[in-house]
Design a protein around this nucleic acid. Structure first.
Length: 143
DNA sequence: TAGGCCATCTGGTCCT
DNA sequence: AGGACCAGATGGCCTA
């Protein structure tokens, strides 16, 4: 069995899964053309156009930020302000790389899901990836 | 309006 | 000491 056969078989089996949504633990969300998440946040690049979150964070951090529970905790922080800001920046970058990795992971899943309008959520991406890998493993073990 | 999803901030903890 | 990772809290955006 060559790669083409395997791929075709996987896709055909995948379509079988798609046609039986009852088997899914987490049914796909209904189609909604022009999904906001797809248009706004389907990729890290689109998620952070012109670093708009940076702008929002900056205003929150340095200009009249509302007092919140987190803000109240800040007064108890033992970290210096400089170090805290630095840690926040690193954490932001870390979470962005995680989101980017998840977006990249979506590209490896069969395209059927994205055809339904709504992009996969992070959790859906992980769950379907596990399912997909199990499918591949099953097919390979039977080959 | 409620609920889901997401990005971000933050403090705690572990590791180097 | 400082970086990485984690989990809780928070607020914004969007859809049903």
């Amino acid at each position: 069995m060559d790669l083409g056969d395997v791929t075709a078989k996987i896709l055909s089996e995948w379509k079988c899964i798609e046609s039986t949504p009852g088997e899914r633990q987490e049914p796909l969300q209904p189609t909604s053309p022009g999904s906001p998440m797809e248009s706004v946040c389907s990729s890290p690049e689109m998620c952070y156009p012109n670093e708009h979150h940076e702008i929002r964070d900056f205003s929150l951090d340095f200009t009249g930020r509302k007092v919140t529970a987190a803000g109240q905790r800040q007064s108890k922080s033992k970290m210096s302000t400089k170090r805290r800001l630095k840690a926040s920046e690193r954490e932001k970058m870390r979470m962005r790389s995680l989101a980017e990795a998840l977006h990249h992971l979506r590209d490896y899943l069969p395209p059927d899901y994205s055809k339904r309008g709504q992009p996969l959520t992070k959790i859906q991406t992980l769950k379907y990836t596990i399912e997909y890998i199990n499918k591949l493993s099953d097919i390979l073990s039977r080959a």
